[in-house]
Amino acid sequence: MVINRVMKKCLAIGWVLFSLWSCGGGADEKPGEVLAFVKPEHFPEPTYTFQNNPITAEGFELGKKLFFDPILSRDKSVSCNNCHQQSRAFADTPLHPTSVGVDNRFGIRNAPSIANMAFMKEFFWDGAVTHLDFVPINAIESDVEMDESLENVVKKLNASEAYRTKFKTAFGTEEATAPYLLHALSQFTAMMISADSKYDKYLQGQEELTANESRGLALFEQKCSSCHAGVLFTDQSYRNNGISSDFGDKGRGLITEDEADEGKFKVPSLRNAGITAPYMHNAKFSTLEEVLEHYGNGMVDSPTLDPSFKNGEVVVGIPMTKEEQGDIIEFIHTLTDYTFISDERFRNNE
C-alpha cells in the first residue's frame, strides 16, 4: 500500500518532468523570455492572459517604443504618453482635465492612471473594454484621441524597417500585425505594477504610518473601503457617487443599455491618487480636499445615486469632520508609489 502511494507520487512527478521536456518541440518558446511579471505577494492573481502573451524583454521593449511613439496617431502628434505620463503614475497632467487628442480636440473623460492594469477585469470608466489588449484600439481609433485606423497604423509600422525588425525579434513574425502590436503594448502596460508605496511598506512591516495617517487609514476602512476595496483600492464595480444628476455621459448605462446604470462609473483605484489630479471621470475636482468635501457635503441626488449615500430619501453622503477629511487625505498620500514613478524601465529613453 505504502509503496503504491509513493509510486503514484513518483509517477505523477515523473510525468510532469517528462512531459515538460519530451514533447516540448520548442514550438512555444519565444525568444529571450527573461523579463518576468512578478505578482506582488499581497496582490490578487492577475487577470491578464499571460499564457497567450508571455512577457519577454523584446516584447516589452517594443511595447515601450510604441507607447512613446506618435506614429500611432493620424498626424504623428499624439502618443500614449501624451495622456499617460509616468510622473503622474501614467494618468494625464492636470493641464488636461479631460484628455486632449489630435487637433487639440477635447475628450469627454479624464485619463486615469494605468498602473496595475494586469489586475483589472474591465477597463475604462464605463467598463466598455473587457480585455487589456483591446484598450489601445479605442485610443487609436477614437476621433478625439489619436484619430487613426488600426489598419493604417499597421501599414505605417510595416513601412519602417526598424519596426519590422523589432516585431520579428519580439514575436518571430515577418510583418507587424495588429494582434502583435496590441500584445506588445499590453506587455508594456501589464508590467506597470504599483505596489511599493509607503502603505505597501507599512503592510509588509517595513515602515510606520504617522498618527494622522493611521487615523486616516482607520477612517478610510470605515467610510471608503466598501467601494475602494482591497489592495487595489477598487471593488471594480460601477457606482454613482453623486457628482452629477445630469447624465450627459451615461457611463455604465452606455454599456448595459439600462437606465438603472446611467451615471454610474467604475470605482477607480486610489493608488497614486495623490498625484493624479484632477479627479472623477469628468475631472470635476482638482484637489483631494474638494473630493473629500464632496463626499462630506456636496453630493447631488439622482435616481441612481449609490444607496449607501442615502438614509431613506435623504442624501447624507459620508459625514466627516474637517479633521477626519484631512486625515483621510494624509492616508491617501501614503498610496503614492515613488518607486513606480521613477522606475527606469518605464522611462522614455529615446
Binding site: T130, H131, D133, F134, L182, S186
Partner: peptide, 8 residues
Amino acid sequence: GVQEGALG
C-alpha cells in the same frame, strides 16, 4: 473568443 485578447 473575446476574452483571449487580441487574435489573428
